[in-house]
Structures are given as structure tokens and as C-alpha cells.
Design a protein around this nucleic acid. Sequence first.
DNA 1: TTGTAGGCGTTATCAG
DNA 2: CTGATAACGCCTACAA
Lengths: 377, 377
Amino acid sequence: MQSRGAFQVIFDAGIVHRLCYGLVMIKPDTAVRADLPVTLTDAQAIGRIVTSYDVAKFAGVSQSAVSRCFTPGKSVSERMRTKILRAANELGYQPNAIARMLITKRSNLIAVIVSNLSVNPDFTSILSQHMIERGLNLLFFTLDQDADADRAIEQLWQYRVDGVISAAELSIDQIRVLRERGIPLVFINRLYDVMGANSVGCDHAEGEGWLIEKLVAAGHSRFGIVAGPEASVVSRMRLRGAVDRLEALGCAAPQVVHSDFTYAGGRGAMRALCGGKKRPDAIVCANDLMAVGCIDEARLALSLKVPEDVSVVGFDGFAPGQWGGYRLTTVRQPVAAMARAAVDMLVARIEDPSMATEKRVFSGELIEGGSARSELA
Amino acid sequence: MQSRGAFQVIFDAGIVHRLCYGLVMIKPDTAVRADLPVTLTDAQAIGRIVTSYDVAKFAGVSQSAVSRCFTPGKSVSERMRTKILRAANELGYQPNAIARMLITKRSNLIAVIVSNLSVNPDFTSILSQHMIERGLNLLFFTLDQDADADRAIEQLWQYRVDGVISAAELSIDQIRVLRERGIPLVFINRLYDVMGANSVGCDHAEGEGWLIEKLVAAGHSRFGIVAGPEASVVSRMRLRGAVDRLEALGCAAPQVVHSDFTYAGGRGAMRALCGGKKRPDAIVCANDLMAVGCIDEARLALSLKVPEDVSVVGFDGFAPGQWGGYRLTTVRQPVAAMARAAVDMLVARIEDPSMATEKRVFSGELIEGGSARSELA
DNA sequence: TTGTAGGCGTTATCAG
DNA sequence: CTGATAACGCCTACAA
């Protein structure tokens, strides 16, 4: 079927719908030129996406007017705005972010890097929410293998992200590359002393201090610590916080085993700690997941009661640790506050790249659960 | 300090490094023209990012040669390739994906949509891994509020993603918009009968059937079912699978309560189910999280033993359900296979948009844990 | 195999 | 306030 006519006819809504196939526009040289007949059956003519140019022709204004209309803060007369918006709506026009990025040098894209270890599962969701509020989109990178980090850095650069939030460790070289390229970077819970590496974190040492104090006050004296991997910065900070506080309180040096932040790792660590002659009566774990593993090992394999025979504390505040069967005594990281701060800080740096490097540290929240004894033995 | 000289001098690595500030290149009209003197102190001249043009000039070849060199499958002589790659490396050049997208109409971006409910936490990571293998990047959208879905659809269209993987429910209208715009879509565990909505899923009914059979074989006859929200497609399919199999086996109709897929919801549901005179002796939950809630409620609040007094089964196979304290009898979803299939299917559709709509259904894997009785009572 | 020229869809700049 | 014109950085014919 063919419909022939001068361009004016296109203003009729019925014909518009026949002209448009879904939200796809007919090629400009057949559809847009007012002096040419319009043939629908020409298959080659179909398939182009609606551009600001199509909208402009359709509304009878210039292309720049359309552009201004979709750019917040540009001055357009009310009459023109309604006319253009109606045309855009009719044609299903949405500005092409890619073309915009090319010229504005702003992608509104934030790269978020997480490693599969040590990830608070809903952290990404919370970040995403805060970014939505600011009109930012999230380019997501997971690090499974070591090589992934380099690939991520390369890709996020190619996509010209405006900034990076990393909940994974990066090498000095990788940080340097970002710095040289002028991409603002905010770490979550990784406080590097590298120039230009901003960070948001939880005060691990403080939190561990609270836990230790509570345990000591309850009369514990033989401590076992289940740390994370030796290479983990987070684990090191928590371990240091616990050890320092024990020393400050005049306690005997704790028995320390390193594990891997997993449930199975926690069970193994508990087994190791309790294998000797004088087993500890208080176990301090570098995260909740391992603490849960310790509790299960104690109850199910070692026939120990928690907290009567042994107290177990964790760190993180993740949901399963608070289930009725565990009710972990732990320190909850203020995930929401940290996520918000990370986005705030990143946006600030994007807007003013010369800003001084900053580290923001948030206190956790002590959760007095039921996995640690609270009265003197 | 000024360094003046003809362009040839720039080939000296030392000067190159002075010319480049980090990985940022001097403006072309001062740095690239061979006949112009180079002034470093001109502040305005600094700040441009290295482009293929800079590399071309630096290597003494044409810009298109550089482009070809970075496009897999284009023919470039070995001599030229090494020359260009060396120059690119020296200047820290990486192609600008944005400019490439604009012309190729391929963004290599896949939108992944998840809702905060019903998300397997590491599903995103697994997806990410499969996408990396194919050179795809992940644009991440979380749906918290209802309005978020529309925003996500709008954004992913503006960024011209090549395809969408959704683990969240979308409205018919939203699906239609994607279809009209020619964006391939694959659902995870949402089997819609909407044209153009491809999907990958787990066979919920089959899995529930296995569980029911096992429970019946163990002598259970009074069934309680903890379903998810009435609106949830997944919940409906699992509920239907369980109810149908009970009927087929000639069992009495089960008592059904609806909950919200959460731990607390599971506990509440268990309380509700066991409040009546004849409490069920087998509880079938629409997911593992609620099953864990049921077990805790049974043990901690109702003083019932699991599985001696009551059997509890779940669905999903999520990690905490397999911890020693629970050892859930459940059906594990083949998350890895589903993720891989989703990416495969999406890529296939991107490459051939005319492909027929397809649904791929994977069988789960029965995990015979310890939360369900296995011998006759 | 290599270089030249045109265009992708937008925003920015500057006249009117 | 509005419209013409030039970038933005790259890919892709096409010609050499």
C-alpha cells in the first residue's frame, strides 16, 4: 500500500502512525523532505531511529530548538516547548545519550567495581538508588580473576565514565592510571595512602575495640581471632583493631588464625582454634559469615554451647547473622551512609577535580546479640 | 619553561613525556601540525585526550590506519601494526567507545535489570563473567520503586544498549516499548506469554513435584504451603507445581498462606500455619529464605523439631540454607547454566533479530538435606 | 594494503 | 529566543 502526498499531510496523526513503524522513522530523504512523495512500501526506507532532526522537521522548527528543549536549563519559549514535546512524544523521540556524551564529555556513567569476596550483597542496590537520584547510571564490573581488574580499568576508560567507585582492591598501578586519566575514584573500605585515592569506610578498629571491651568486661581472657586473608586490607584493619585493644586492656596475646571470609573457612578456623589444649573462650571473627561458621562448628561438631561455653562475635551486620538461630553480637557497617557518602564525594570531585583528597570514616553500630556472654562467668 | 622545535623532535621519547601531561595530549593545532613550534607553557593547549588522530600523526600514518589497527578482523600489515601499537602505547591511547558506538550502532552494553526482591545475590556476578567473555559490558539497574522501571527503560534506550536481561517483572507496556524499539529482551524466571519476550528459567513445577513426592513418600499427609506474594509469577508457578502434584497423588488440599519471600515473612507464615488445631506436618516454602524462617520459628518459638516433628522444604539452593544448622531439603536452581543461556540467547538475538521467540527451561537439582523426614513416620 | 572524505546525532557557539 | 554551522572521535566506503 502506498500513501503519496506532500509533507504537510504528515501532520495528520493517522498518517504519522502509518509512517512510523513502532518508534522507528522513515529515512529522511524519503520522509523528511517536504517536496518528495512518501512511499511506505520501500523496505529500504524503514529502520532509521528517530532523531532530533526528525522531530524538528515534524514540529516545523530548527534542530537546535529541539536540542535546547531536551537540555535542562536552556531557555525555550513555552509555545515552542509544548509544540516540540508533542512532536517528540508523537514520534517516540528520546535523545541519543551517546551523541550527547561525545560532545559534552560527560557520560553520566559511574563504574562500580566489586570483587566477589567481601561484598555486601545489597551494597550495589543501595549505590544504584543514590545514583538514580543524581541521574547517574551504573556500569558494573565484577572481579573474579586478577586479570579482570585491568580489563575493567580499560573498559571504563573506553566508555569515558565520569567516576569510579571501587569496593575491590586495586593495584597501585591501576590507581595511578585512573589518576593520570583524570577519573575521580572513591574506594569503599579500602584506605590507601595513595595520592588521589579518596575513600569512604567503616571504622573497623573502633568497632573491634567495642567488641573486645564487651568480651573482656564479660570476663573473657583466652581470645581466638579468625582473621581474613593476609592480603585483605579490611581484615588487617580489623585484626589490628582487636589486637591493639586486647593489648591496651592488658590481656594475653590472642591466638590468631587466617581464613578466607567464607562460612566453610569459619568452620575450619574454629576447628583449628579449638584443637589445642587450652581452647579460647572468646572468638573474634573478621566478618559475620565466618562467625556463623564458627558457631555452627561449635554447636554441631564440637558440642559447645554458644555463648555459654564460648562467645563468638563477628563484623558486618549481614542479615543471616541476625537470624534467630545465631543472633550474632557484631558491629553493623552503616552501609547506607557509606554508599551515600561515596556518591556525594564522587560527584563533588567530578564537579571540582581539584578537590583535596579526602577520607570519610563512619562508626559502625554495635549489635548486642546473643552470641556473646554478657555477664561475668 | 618552553621547548621549541619542529614536529620530528617529538619522536624522542623524553620530549614526548614532557609533551604529554599524564595521558592527556596537547591540542592538535599546536602539537600535531609538523610545521608549528610546540609551546608547553600555553595552558590552553593542555587538557585534550589522546585520539586516534594523535596516534596517527605520531606514528606517521593515516587516522584510518589507526582505526583499522584497533578493529579486529581488518587487514593491516605487520609493519604498520607494530608501529601504530607502539605509538598508541607511548601516548596511552585507547579508542573512544562512545564515538565508536555512535557510528557502529553497537554499544556492547547489556542492561541488566533486577528487583530487590527475589534476587540471587551472585547472579549478577555470574552474568558479568559470561558477558566479559563476549566483550559485553553491564549497565545495571535496580528496581526499588515502581517508577524505577520506567526510568530504567528510558535510560537503557538512551544509552542504546544492545540488549536487556531482566530478572524483574516488567509491565506489558514496558515489554512492548522494548520490542518496538528493537531491543532484544531475555527474562530470567519470568515466562510471559508476550510476543517477543524470550526467557530462561528453572522448571519450578517439576522441582516442586520432586519435593512433594519425596514428602509424600516419607508419609506426610498434612501439607502447609508458604507461597510468595500473590503477584509474583515465580511464586505462582511454584505454588501451582506443588498443588498439582499433591492433587495428582491424591492428597488432601494443602493449607496455603501467602508471604513475602523474606525471613521474617517465613517465620510469620509458620506461626500462622501452626496456629490452628491440626497443624501441618510438612511445610513447602516458595523459597529457601522463608524456609529458613519456618525452621527457626519451629525450633525457637514453637518448640518443634525439624524434621522429626515437621518437615520443611524450600526452593533456590541459596548458600545459607545449606549451612549446618539448616541443611535444607530444596531444589537448587542451575544459576550458572541459566546465566550462560541468557547471555547466549541474547547474543543470538542481537545478531539475528528475526529469530523466533524462545523459552529455555532448565531442571533444578534436588538437594536431599536434613530438613525433611525421609523414612515413613 | 593504505589514505581520503563523509557522516553518525548531539551540543556549543555565535549571529540574527 | 531562535537558527545556522562547526565540532566531538571514530568507522566505512571508495579511490589510489
